Computed example of a mutant assay.
Amino acid sequence: MSLHLDRLCVRAPDGRALFAPLSLRLAPGAVGCVMGPSGVGKSTLLNAVGGHLPRTFRADGRVLVDGCDVMPLPAERRRIGVMFQQAVMFPHLSVAGNLAFGLCPSVRGRAARRRAVEDALERAGLAGFGPRDPATLSGGQQARVALLRTLLARPRAVLLDEPFSGLDAERRQDIRRFVFDSIRTAGIAALLVTHDAEDAEAAGGAVTRLG
């Protein structure tokens, strides 16, 4: 799935544009990057793309997924996944339960859903982790599970909001590689927000600077 931002601009409640109109084309499997200092509007840009913009803000322009403009649609119908800086796990669910929660509804039947979760854990190097409490996982393991849950929903595009910033250097490189490889394998476009030049270089896609 491709992602195209066509002169996308976000305006604050006072009507002020947070950044100049942004145009960006990402092919299936490509990871584009938006960089800029804190407070420039990077996360707000992702909110506009995903459909999570506060009502007091306004977005102008178009967001096209595979050529279809999703701007008129609510977030749940855009099918754009989000991976945040902190991996958000449901504490009352096991690792497998967290992944099953994100499964695409088209995966039906208890056996099929269990197999999909087990296959995902094996691909991530986490075979046998299904019964574990998410609180027992390391930061890197939680990041892998968070991405798996996002991808199991079969999103049409993925937004990455500084997902590596809470990791140490060694784990950051490993998780970054896992995330980018998984997105390329899935063949969906992704937009990464970061302030780290190494993240942008590893993504290998177009780099846009705000501010």
Rank of each mutant, 00 (worst) to 15 (best):
177 R>F: 01
207 V>Y: 02
170 E>R: 05
186 A>I: 07
166 G>D: 00
181 D>K: 11
201 E>N: 05
206 A>I: 10
178 F>W: 02
202 A>G: 05
144 R>Y: 03
193 V>K: 04
185 T>I: 04
147 L>F: 07
165 S>A: 13
170 E>C: 07
167 L>P: 03
184 R>H: 07
160 L>V: 08
179 V>F: 10
190 A>G: 12
192 L>W: 01
179 V>E: 01
173 Q>G: 09
188 I>Y: 10
152 L>N: 11
145 V>S: 10
187 G>A: 03
199 D>P: 13
146 A>L: 03
169 A>Y: 11
158 V>F: 13
202 A>S: 13
155 P>K: 00
208 T>K: 14
160 L>P: 10
184 R>D: 02
142 Q>N: 05
169 A>K: 14
156 R>A: 10
185 T>D: 00
193 V>T: 06
191 L>H: 05
201 E>I: 01
207 V>A: 01
210 L>V: 04
181 D>A: 11
187 G>N: 06
181 D>G: 09
198 E>C: 12
163 P>K: 14
161 D>F: 09
160 L>F: 05
141 Q>L: 12
165 S>I: 01
173 Q>S: 13
208 T>S: 13
142 Q>W: 03
194 T>N: 05
170 E>V: 02
176 R>L: 01
190 A>I: 04
141 Q>H: 12
157 A>H: 12
199 D>K: 06
138 S>D: 12
143 A>R: 15
189 A>W: 02
162 E>H: 13
138 S>W: 08
176 R>N: 02
138 S>K: 06
207 V>H: 01
143 A>K: 15
149 R>L: 00
191 L>R: 09
163 P>F: 02
192 L>R: 03
174 D>I: 08
161 D>G: 10
210 L>I: 03
198 E>I: 00
152 L>K: 15
173 Q>M: 14
168 D>Q: 07
198 E>L: 08
149 R>Q: 02
180 F>R: 14
172 R>T: 01
210 L>N: 11
146 A>R: 14
184 R>M: 09
208 T>Y: 11
188 I>G: 11
187 G>W: 06
155 P>R: 00
140 G>H: 08
163 P>W: 06
175 I>S: 08
183 I>K: 15
180 F>I: 07
193 V>A: 01
146 A>V: 03
140 G>S: 06
187 G>L: 05
180 F>A: 10
